[in-house]
Write a protein that binds this DNA or RNA. Structure first.
Lengths: 368, 368
DNA sequence: GTTAGCACTCTCTAGGGGAGAGTGCTAACG
DNA sequence: CGTTAGCACTCTCCCCTAGAGAGTGCTAAC
């Protein structure tokens, strides 16, 4: 082994980020990835030939594997073990080796059929989407509700709950509902000099609706300056509701199929499991995904150490945004070991994101 | 060993459900439970004496242990191992051996302080409660939102979303908000012969509010018969919203501290883990808890096989209801291995349920 | 009733020894 | 010159064994 090769192997980093491969190398890499994804066992030259008729001898495969390892696409758990794809190997596979089919007709119909069970409420759609994703990819699935990226005031209402207490309900333009309870003291602060009977409250709500409809938080703030009668209410309550809605990027998360991940041999052993569960519980990795996904749209694949988050170095994400551009945006995708069935997961995520697009758009009406 | 003793051990069931114990037996049982809860290692007579000065010899402890095993309070993993409490042993411990302190002053203050961070929205309270429970008991915590057990119509509103689409928002008397989107076709069905401009919609909402305020689903149905103009809207939309709210017992669940459970040695090994995660994800066991908890109130402890659910045979639940009686009811509690720190978990659950009671009641105003 | 002594049982761990799979290298082959 | 067969070598995994350690139940003495 030359010194250069030695160095490259020690660092485990590729010499060239996007190497040009011979046909044979591509064939071998593809076979190794697919075999390893299937079996979770490091792939040896001989056993590979047992499953793939490559038309060459084990020795030839071995030399191809050695080259692929030199290029940083495969790696070696230990000297006398088979090869395992590196993150870069998976990356190359996903980019140019994978025979990615669209989801076949029966899968699409099955999924669409489940969605066509009408009368599902909003949340149930999301639950269903997560459940389908998880089942179809055998990974953990995550779906977030579609949210407007800038909350805009829609319609307000003041409702009496019990003696002295009122509820301010604001429907945002994206259809989300936010609310705040106001006890007597808070009401006095927000609406001074008022008897606070229902007819008066209705008048106040009507005034809010007339003045604020369609406005975002900064616009509301400016408008409030010209409305002395409503200024206190707006600054203490309405603004905070809107700002809260703006600040929350990922508010609620629907997860399914966590068990699928735990059953993978790479996570069956104790220690590795904990960080993943924490990630799924906290799910703040989603916030980091938002800018990436909104910038370009479509399905994004993040493999292993491509994740900035240390705890996710052995995890791949396949995520896509969905929703109506500039109106409401949600995230959906799957999460599993880097040893993932990409050719299955990617089309599934893509199909589900278009399906959710349709749902959102049909909700907002077919306007353009 | 007599034949009777042999039989009893073979079946592993106690001869008497609530045996009378000597002082020594009680002392030994308590020591075994507390030692095992702490160490997770089967407790031997000698090692027990190393940690508890019982003032007797190992042989005496052994004979007491043998009696306790005969009574079904302890069990034996294998012949030459120490003793482990049985479900019944834990039960007796919880009922009459445990020195249950109320949460001490500092704990109470710490918890109360976290809640006093004002401006938390409803959901954040629940998240916080789950997080406190999980942290304080080192178990998995579950909290459900308080829901009215019978939804009652509060206030309706029809909001325009986009061309042709409207949103019917109904605030229920318990403060929960339900909504349904209506596209053009659904609107035509629900409100025939109408131009559907905003002023007309406002009129319709006002009519609903005047007629239905405070009514439950069956009452709404009866009232609808006398309101031909609104009958279609009520029967197609309002009724289904109310019935949905009624049927959903546990709609949303806030969980925290799942990792705490996974770190327990009894679940660290692969197979046992899966059923627990599934339980926590589906959380339908909560529905079974509702009748039990509402019937009597207070903290309920369910140990191991006392659970009807097979998958929970090695799990203990400590749950309490919270809320305002006859108005809104929520559940909160913790879930962990039967080897649980009951003297810590029970007061914590109790304290948090009273705290949530206070929150709910202050929300509804201090009315009676 | 309590205790010391004792023989016995069972688990857990460490160490040794293949079996098996895989490798890299070399030399022959087409 | 790429490909292949052969070979010596390496490393893991699994099984087996043996011994240490902990704990038990029983018996006999206190």
């Amino acid at each position: 082994m030359t010194e250069e090769r030695q160095r490259s192997r020690d660092r485990g980093t590729p010499i060239r980020p996007a190497p040009e491969l011979t046909d044979r190398q591509r064939t071998v890499l593809r076979a190794v990835v697919e075999d390893y994804v299937l079996t979770a066992v490091p792939v040896g030259s001989k056993s590979l030939l047992g499953r793939y008729a490559l038309g060459v001898s084990p020795a030839t495969v071995r030399s191809a594997m050695a080259e692929l390892e030199f290029l940083g696409l495969l790696s070696h758990p230990h000297t006398s073990a088979g090869r395992v794809p590196s993150d870069l190997g998976y990356r190359l596979y996903v980019e140019s080796l994978m025979r990615e089919a669209e989801l076949d007709q029966t899968d699409r119909l099955t999924i669409r059929h489940q969605f066509s069970q009408v009368e599902l409420t909003n949340n149930e759609w999301l639950r269903l989407a997560a459940s389908i994703l998880a089942g179809s990819t055998r990974s953990a699935a995550v779906v977030t509700p579609a949210r407007s990226r800038r909350a805009r005031f829609g319609h307000a209402q003041l409702v009496s709950l019990a003696d002295g207490t009122r509820l301010l309900v604001v429907v945002l333009l994206d259809g989300n509902v936010v609310q705040r309870r106001l006890d007597r003291a808070a009401l006095q602060r927000a609406i001074p000099d008022s008897a606070l009977d229902q007819s008066e409250l209705d008048g106040i709500a009507a005034a809010l609706n007339a003045e604020l409809a369609g406005l975002s938080a900064p616009q509301v703030r400016r408008r409030a300056e010209k409305l002395p009668a409503l200024a206190a209410l707006i600054s203490t309550v309405v603004m905070s509701l809107l700002e809260e809605a703006d600040s929350v990027v990922v508010e609620e998360v629907f997860t399914d199929g966590i068990v699928n991940v735990l059953e993978q041999p790479e996570f069956a052993r104790g220690g590795k499991l904990r960080p993943i569960l924490e990630i799924l519980q906290r799910s703040d990795f989603l916030e980091q995904l938002v800018p990436v996904l909104t910038r370009s749209g479509g399905v994004h694949v993040i493999i292993g150490r491509e994740n900035t988050n240390d705890a996710m170095h052995e995890i791949s994400l396949i995520f896509a945004p969905y929703g109506a551009p500039d109106r409401a945006l949600g995230l959906l995708g799957v999460l599993g070991p880097t040893r993932m069935r990409y050719p299955r997961a990617i089309p599934t995520v893509r199909y589900l994101s278009t399906l959710m697009d349709e749902l959102i758009n049909s909700q907002y009406g077919e306007t353009q």
